[in-house]
Write a protein that binds this DNA or RNA. Structure first.
Lengths: 195, 195
DNA sequence: TCACCATGCAAGTATGTACTTGCCTGCGTA
DNA sequence: TACGCAGGCAAGTACATACTTGCATGGTGA
């Protein structure tokens, strides 16, 4: 039972690793099994089909409340500091789930619908929270923007673009350069939004 | 000869269309041929292999000088107006090549290397030009930034994020909402960078 | 000791798909 | 007319891959 769980996990993690490289269509069950160090048959005994394997993998998505909690508890009302917190949390969560994001981005004709749903949920969630934050800050005259929702999208897309670029680029974007980007982009936004 | 050219083109365009939907691995030569309204064998007579078909498709990439010309000729020295021109040109070019960008993004184990090279060339090119522009503007005290290169990356990633989101999203991002984003993002940057 | 259960292994099936071959047809041109 | 050439069509090859089956084995708990 203990070992069985471990075999399941090895298969799931191997599948995620390889598919993040080659995409869903380009990855074979034989490869996955080999990477997990088990027989191919074992994969089918555990998951039945390749698709169900992926569904199991995506059910491990688990960002979620972290971001909501952040907005409810950790924000101070200082625009620059808050944007920094938001941006850092965003990248932390995206990085944690980066391989699944990558698989969903590559896509496939047969990838379970759940994959796309899970991958898309997060950005939308954050955009909504950020919009509410900007509206609240506007009402306190701490932020000046004609269209908080659009401003939130702009901030989101900037971070999303940086994230995907850092993932797709061959040259590994170092943690340092990502931090530099976060600080610069937050600085720009804070300056632009301050009344 | 005239008709032969047309058959080649029909195949190329069909391939691009379908692969933008299903990815390179997920698209069959039979599908492509059917969509082009020709026999599958005709595809192989023209291109030999699926890979060479894709190489031919990507050789149609043709942005390029347009952007360089833009920087050399169309910029006025007015930060807001120039950023607007740059952003609009970027999105115009990306939109024109959007399907090829999409295919490259989805990727594949066997997609010709050329595809990735072509798809990545454009953003880097623009980033470099934008960096030079910001440096020149800094020297005229029209722009204030501690790190022009990083600022350029930030601007790039913001636009790249918006572009990919608008492509991947199910809900079609209308031309209007893209324009609204462009204007808002440029407004923010111009305000943030003005001394 | 016995039953059970997860796994390995060898072999095989079924299917899809890139790519080939041989032959025929229609069309424009010398 | 005769030739060449682009393309259709039918059939087939070679191979990869998802998934199956039957059997052996080793460990674990009753």
């Amino acid at each position: 039972m203990n070992d069985s769980q471990s075999t399941r996990d090895k298969l799931l993690l191997s599948a995620i690793d390889i598919m993040a490289e080659k995409g869903y269509d380009g990855t074979t069950t034989k490869e996955i099994a080999a990477a997990a160090g088990v027989n191919e048959v074992t994969l089918f005994r555990h998951f039945g089909t390749k698709q169900k394997l992926m569904e199991a993998a995506f059910s491990r998505f688990h960002y979620a409340d972290e971001m909501t909690k952040l907005f409810n508890e950790s924000l101070t009302g200082d625009l620059h500091a808050d944007l920094l917190t938001i941006s850092r949390t965003y990248h932390k969560i995206m990085y944690r789930n980066r391989k699944l994001m990558y698989i969903a981005q590559k896509g496939s004709s047969t990838l379970p619908e759940e994959a796309y749903r899970e991958a898309g949920r997060h950005p939308r969630h954050m955009q909504k929270l950020l919009t509410d934050y900007l509206i609240a800050m506007s009402q306190q005259n701490k932020v000046m923007t004609p269209n908080p929702e659009l401003t939130a999208w702009t901030f989101m897309w900037m971070n999303y673009g940086a994230f995907t670029s850092s993932m797709n680029g061959k040259k590994s974007v170092t943690e340092d350069s990502l931090n530099a980007f976060i600080e610069e982009s937050v600085r720009l936004f804070a300056r632009a939004l301050t009344p």
